[in-house]
Design a protein around this nucleic acid. Sequence first.
DNA 1: TCCTAATTATGACAATTATCATTTATTTTT
DNA 2: AAAAATAAATGATAATTGTCATAATTAGGA
Lengths: 228, 228
Amino acid sequence: MSNCTHCIMKRFNALKTLTHDELERFSDHKTSLIIKKGENIMTEGNSINGLYCIQDGKCKLTKLNTNGKEQIIKFIKGGDILGHRSILSEEPVGLNATALEDMRVCFIPKGDILESIKDNPQFSLNLIKNISLQLSLANTAISQMAQKPVKDRLAETLLSLEEIFGVDNEDCIDVILTREEIANTIGTATESAIRLLSNLKKDHVIDLLGKKIKILNKNALKNISEGY
Amino acid sequence: MSNCTHCIMKRFNALKTLTHDELERFSDHKTSLIIKKGENIMTEGNSINGLYCIQDGKCKLTKLNTNGKEQIIKFIKGGDILGHRSILSEEPVGLNATALEDMRVCFIPKGDILESIKDNPQFSLNLIKNISLQLSLANTAISQMAQKPVKDRLAETLLSLEEIFGVDNEDCIDVILTREEIANTIGTATESAIRLLSNLKKDHVIDLLGKKIKILNKNALKNISEGY
DNA sequence: TCCTAATTATGACAATTATCATTTATTTTT
DNA sequence: AAAAATAAATGATAATTGTCATAATTAGGA
């Protein structure tokens, strides 16, 4: 089994401030998991007793609305962590984390995390900063959902997906989402999302290659996202 | 000047775990402010060097959208605190806090707060819990903004306003908001908000007495907010 | 590989929501 | 108290978005 002291996670996020000893402790207690596409890492309402480090793979964080529709709140990729909010706030998980592809994930028991929080103020601070940043982004999202038309939100989402996942060797945004998932991200009907994507393609702003999306004119998208 | 050891804030929020000594320290360094209706306690993008304790009065937390429209993210009342996210994350303030009526506010310098954070893990934990709860609520708000029609969001907002501010001696929701502010809360045009309020009145779900709103049928509102 | 199921796409139409214009009511200022 | 400014209300209309139906395409399993 791999050793946390050499883990790529160390380069990212809150974990970069952990000491060698702390990482050794993590190594001793951690479990490595394979999460298959479509499976949940965490489930809304469940309690959780540890931290998940995403080694590899992508997942979506979703919320089930009272009307039964899924809302995608955030995307997660390798190097990100999951579950720290729940550990810190001592509350059940608020979102579903569903794999968009097969994932490799490490689970570190709550006890070890809490010890590091106690011993290592910088680690603890970094976790808080992470949650604060998420709150800040969430507030922006509320504002955009409330006030921007669907077209603008789609443009915004495409830019943000490229930002998060980068592009593959064909310059396509490096994540596979169904049209329904795109619709559930921007908060619209699947048909509307499809139609607006088709329009963007017709205007040569993006190209559609099956499920793959290639941004052709980033400036145009930026303008659309700002309402022009 | 009043003494923090007897302050009503002690009964609320993160501050209830502060020791007598800590409160004495706060007392020595705090400043009391009067914020007039319409004035800002904090302004988006500014940095902040302390914590605001709301003694009395109400304010709105807003965000200015790229299109120039104001989005109301949250309402704040006596007993709430402001600025702790910014202190903890060491980032500028993310939202404007604008007084909806004259307010009494105490300002406690950052240094004292940081000392208490260092000395008092429970205080620190409570601040984190507060931010976590806000994140959780924000995620719910994203989902509702994205997926619920304006009518449902209005119903939801009315219920939540009564929840937050309670009712006055005439059973009206105890906060004065303009129609525009209501519209900016639910994310719609002012005229749409006015029309939907009129409809709710016509259906005897609410009553409108000038700017005051009285909920007549809470169950009906609840049903509407859930899409029935 | 074929078959089935799911996804994507598109048209037609209905419902929702925004915008503009105008009137009425309420607040604020003089 | 009157005048001016602001806010609320309402109608008419346009734009956006959702829903339903159906066809075309793609993906996944036997």
